[in-house]
C-alpha cells in the first residue's frame, strides 16, 4: 500500500479497499499472504460492536468469494475522510453484486494505519444504504 502522506485521505481509503478487493478477495489463491500486505497480524476490527481479529477476518474471505457475482462490480464510494496523523475517519458506501442481489452498505469508521500503509485498527458502524428515493 502507498503510505498515507502520499494521498489525500479520501483517495487513500478508496485505493486501500479497491486494491484489497482486487488482491485479496478476488481470485482463488491463498488470501493470507495478500492480506498481510494490508492488515497487520495483530489487527483488531470492531464492526457494529463485533470484534474481528486476523483469523476471523481471514475466515470471512472464503464466503465473500463464494457469494460475490462473477462480475461483482464492487465499488468503494468515499464520501468524506479526515486524517489525523496515522488515523483516518471516513464515511463511505460499499457497493457490490452478490450471486443473488446487489448490496450497498454505508460505513462510518475510524481507521489506524502503520507508516507503510497497513491497517492495524478499525472501529466502525454500518447500515444497509438507503435506496435513492428514501430519506437518509
Amino acid at each position: 500500500m502507498k503510505p498515507l502522506p502520499q494521498s489525500t485521505p479520501e483517495q487513500f481509503i478508496a485505493d486501500f479497499f479497491t486494491t484489497f478487493h482486487e488482491q485479496v478477495v478476488r481470485g482463488d489463491h491463498d488470501p493470507a499472504p495478500a492480506m498481510a500486505r494490508f492488515y497487520t497480524p495483530d489487527i483488531v476490527m470492531i464492526n457494529d460492536g463485533i470484534r474481528l481479529d486476523w483469523d476471523r477476518l481471514l475466515s470471512h474471505i472464503h464466503p465473500v468469494r463464494k457469494n460475490l457475482a462473477e462480475d461483482d462490480d464492487s465499488r468503494f464510494e468515499v464520501h468524506e475522510a479526515i486524517a489525523d496523523g496515522n488515523r483516518i475517519a471516513a464515511r463511505l458506501t460499499i457497493h457490490a453484486a452478490t450471486r443473488k442481489k446487489r448490496i450497498a452498505t454505508d460505513v462510518v469508521a475510524f481507521y489506524t494505519f502503520t507508516p507503510d500503509g497497513r491497517m492495524t485498527h478499525a472501529h466502525g458502524i454500518t447500515r444497509p444504504a438507503p435506496k435513492p428515493q428514501e430519506p437518509s
Binding site: 464492526n47 457494529d48 463485533i50 477476518l57 475466515s59 470471512h60 472464503h62 457469494n67 454500518t126
Partner: peptide
C-alpha cells in the same frame, strides 16, 4: 458457523 463477520453474513 465459520466465516461470519457482518450483518450481510447473518442475513445470507
Amino acid at each position: 458457523v465459520i466465516g461470519m463477520a457482518c450483518h450481510n453474513c447473518a442475513a445470507t
